[in-house]
Computed example of a mutant assay.
Amino acid sequence: MTIFENFLYDIQKVKVLDNDIHISKYVAIDLSEKQTDHSRKFLEDPNHFQSFIDDYLRTNNALVAYGGYNEKRTLYHHNELFNDEESAERNMHIGFDFWAKAGTKVVAPLDATVHSFDYNTGEGNYGPTVILEHQIDGHHFYTLYGHLSIESIENIEIGDHIGRNQVFASIGDMSVNGNYAPHLHFQIIIDLEGYFGDYPGVSSEDDLPHYLKNCPDPDLLFKLSTP
């Protein structure tokens, strides 16, 4: 691991959703290309997407399904946001998703200030988005929160202090979140590269090495795969 990755791993395990949801109610989910049949239906029919997630949570007696970092997905295939004539298809997910009910509280995993926020509209986009800035033990980095509720960006200001475990947002529904089943897209970013209230959460395979270096695995913080 890099020095920064070791720093993240050494931080005590954090949460980013409602602290009242016990870790026993979390379950891993695979939305990679191995799930092609489901994935192609998801964005073509958002209600099918919602039903699939609801059924998955119910079957696993869970409230949150998580995963998706460095996952190759076919669910973006038909969406123009991820496919244009001038660049390679973007199908590699470089964030970490938490699939849960709309309205679920989002908490800051670490002390932070609000760097920026925006409403990234359009099919397949983030919808309401917040980026927090962190300066901890000599490390300067950012965390992105996508697919939030409109209310999440109505009462915050750039520079606001957000304490660790403080509720600052909530998960949005499909009417505002880019037409997905409700979930939080979480991403660690070392260099924002000039972005404001936004940063790519899906990469082409050609650009993947750059994004994996700039956006390390969030599970270094969450430690959900650690026994």
Rank of each mutant, 00 (worst) to 15 (best):
I53K: 07
A100R: 04
S116E: 00
A108T: 09
E80L: 13
P46Y: 12
D111I: 04
F49E: 11
E80F: 09
H93Y: 10
A62R: 12
N47S: 09
V106S: 07
E133Q: 02
G95V: 06
G103D: 06
D97K: 02
F82L: 06
F98P: 09
L132S: 00
A108S: 15
A65N: 08
T121G: 05
V130R: 09
N60C: 08
Y126C: 05
D118T: 14
A88E: 15
I53H: 13
R58C: 05
H78I: 12
G103P: 01
M92T: 00
Y56P: 05
F117Q: 02
H77F: 14
K72E: 15
R58V: 10
G127I: 12
N83H: 14
A65C: 10
A100H: 05
H134P: 00
N79V: 12
A65G: 12
T104F: 03
L110T: 01
L75H: 06
G95L: 06
V114K: 02
F98W: 12
N120P: 02
W99R: 04
H134A: 03
S87W: 14
Q50E: 13
N79C: 05
A108M: 11
D84E: 09
N79T: 11
E89L: 12
D111N: 15
E85A: 08
N79L: 14
P46F: 11
K101Y: 07
L132E: 00
F49M: 07
F98Q: 12
H140S: 11
D54M: 08
G138V: 09
Y56S: 13
H134I: 11
H93W: 10
T74A: 11
N70T: 03
H93G: 08
A62W: 06
F117P: 01
F96W: 15
E85Y: 14
H140C: 08
E133M: 01
H48R: 03
L57A: 07
D55H: 10
A88Q: 10
F98L: 14
V64W: 04
E85R: 06
Q135L: 11
Q50S: 11
R58D: 08
A88L: 13
T113V: 15
V106I: 15
Y119T: 02
G122N: 03
L110E: 01
N125Q: 05
A112C: 07
H139E: 13
T121D: 03
A112I: 04
L81S: 02
P46I: 10
W99E: 10
H78E: 10
M92L: 14
H77V: 02
L81Y: 13
K101Q: 13
E133K: 00
K101L: 14
G122S: 08
T74S: 14
H140F: 13
F49Y: 15
A100G: 09
F96D: 08
I136D: 00
A102W: 00
I94C: 04
Y56N: 06
S116D: 01
V130Q: 02
F82D: 00
H139D: 01
R90T: 15
S87P: 01
E133I: 00
R73E: 00
H140M: 05
K72T: 11
Q135S: 04
E89Y: 09
E85V: 05
K105N: 11
T104V: 04
S87Y: 12
H93A: 06
L81K: 12
L110A: 03
S87M: 07
T121K: 08
G95M: 06
F96E: 07
V64E: 06
K105A: 15
N47G: 04
